[in-house]
């Protein structure tokens, strides 16, 4: 690591006008953002702080809290730093903004999340199922997904 976490946090906080919320239960440095702040935060991270690679994007389903948590893992080749951005969105109507205008790879990572978790991104250029057939019903990675086909392990 080229910088310590503390000096990097300072750099982060200078870039944002509002104070940041950090998620404690995480191994990487994680910023927690609201859904309406999501795009602006990621844009600042990309353009001001030079996080030029979207390494990974995934979703986590939390049915008890009625939310889907979106995870963005960013990497900066300038700072050699990694950061995770976490945003909670409504589980029944998940319509977060697409970030494919910032990082091109987001187009397909978001298609994967749409396919497996049923998150419909706004302003996505080509939102189709990626792995499953177009006539598939349901989102398999949701915790309440039921299917005639799945065999439960008998023990």
């Amino acid at each position: 690591m080229s910088q310590t976490i503390e000096s990097f946090k300072l750099l982060l906080e200078n870039a944002f006008s509002e104070p940041l919320t950090y998620l404690e239960a995480s191994q990487l440095l994680t910023i927690k953002v609201q859904e309406n702040q999501l795009f602006a935060t990621l844009k600042t991270l990309k353009e001001t702080l030079k996080f030029d690679a979207l390494i990974d994007h995934a979703g986590v389903d939390w049915p008890n809290e009625n939310k889907i948590e979106l995870i963005y893992i960013l990497f900066s080749t300038h700072h050699n730093q990694q950061i995770m951005v976490s945003a909670d969105i409504d589980r029944n109507q998940p319509t977060p903004p697409s970030v494919s205008s910032l990082w091109a790879i987001a187009e397909w990572q978001e298609r994967e999340v749409f396919d497996l978790l049923g998150v419909t991104y706004k302003n996505h250029p080509d939102l189709r199922r990626l792995f499953l057939e177009d006539n598939w019903v349901g989102s398999p990675l949701r915790k309440d997904y039921k299917d005639d086909f799945i065999l439960e392990r008998p023990w």
Partner: peptide
Amino acid sequence: FIYDSYTTIR
């Protein structure tokens, strides 16, 4: 992938 998989043909 015989158990808990939603796509694999057995």
